[in-house]
């Protein structure tokens, strides 16, 4: 699999590696997918990178590759920001080859990472017709998570037709941030757009939301989908090739 902009892959890895340290990458003719839960099985991440999004892609037979995201992240940190990236696995090999090429083709780096033997537990993610779908700038969402984490470890997300409200309370006291739906949309990327079938009010652990925001460099917008008694879906699109979707189970009043 070859990417002209290797930085896209680095952003994917940086977006996943705090939530999951290692994961099984499923490679097929259609592209690469990954599904993994965090260690406490509270959150799940689903990655899709379609083959047509790569500059070139070939997969002669389906492979499940156990990869340490922490090690992959260390290797990708050596990549130049404009480097192209090629990832290769030979048929009977127990390692993955990561090749980086500088833009003016004068520097070639090759790394080989040992593959891991991981037992991949796969969950079925049901198609959900969410009560509420919010689109907002990913930087804004990152900022809200950071600000709310000052006040408490849980954030209540309430949606109404006017907008969406994030609130947190703890020993210090409490705080809330309300975003109003954008009316005159000049730039889609900066808009807050709320499609609401019915109002929802759900509580989530803010430290997971903050971990999801590590994937924000992938996309200027984030999609948040909510329904009562349903995991939140937090989606960052990967331009022209797929998405990273995080799911987080809600917290409930005892």
């Amino acid at each position: 699999a070859r990417l002209l902009h290797g930085s896209i892959f680095a952003k994917v890895i940086e977006g996943l590696r705090e939530l999951v340290n290692e994961a099984t990458w499923e490679c097929s003719g259609n592209g690469i997918t990954l599904q993994a839960m965090d260690s406490s099985h509270v959150a799940l991440v689903s990655l899709v990178m379609r083959s047509e999004g790569f500059e070139s892609y070939r997969c002669d037979r389906n492979m499940s590759l156990g990869i340490s995201l922490v090690s992959m992240s260390k290797v990708l940190k050596t990549m130049g920001k404009d480097d192209s990236l090629t990832i290769r696995v030979n048929d009977d090999s127990d390692s993955i080859i990561i090749a980086m090429e500088s833009q003016n083709q004068d520097k070639f780096a090759d790394y080989e990472l040992r593959l891991m033997d991981l037992d991949s537990e796969h969950l079925g993610i049901p198609d959900t017709d969410y009560s509420c779908a919010i689109k907002m700038p990913s930087s804004e969402f990152s900022r809200i998570c950071r600000d709310m984490s000052i006040m408490g470890d849980s954030v209540l997300i309430c949606t109404t037709k006017e907008g969406v409200k994030f609130s947190a309370k703890g020993d210090l006291g409490q705080g809330s941030i309300r975003l109003v739906q954008t009316t005159n949309i000049e730039k889609e990327e900066e808009a807050v757009i709320i499609e609401m079938k019915e109002a929802v009010a759900l509580t989530f652990a803010v430290r997971y939301l903050s971990m999801f925001c590590k994937a924000a460099p992938l996309s200027p917008q984030v999609g948040l989908s909510l329904s009562e008694d349903t995991p939140l879906m937090c989606e960052f699109k990967i331009a022209e090739m797929g998405h990273v979707r995080f799911y987080l189970a809600p917290k409930i009043e005892d």
Binding site: L44, P231, Y247, L248, A249, K251, I252, D254
Partner: peptide, 14 residues
């Protein structure tokens, strides 16, 4: 206090 649910409460293991 609110209690954190597990993701497998909602998504079934295949």
């Amino acid at each position: 206090m609110n209690r954190q649910l597990g993701i497998s409460t909602f998504f079934l293991t295949l």
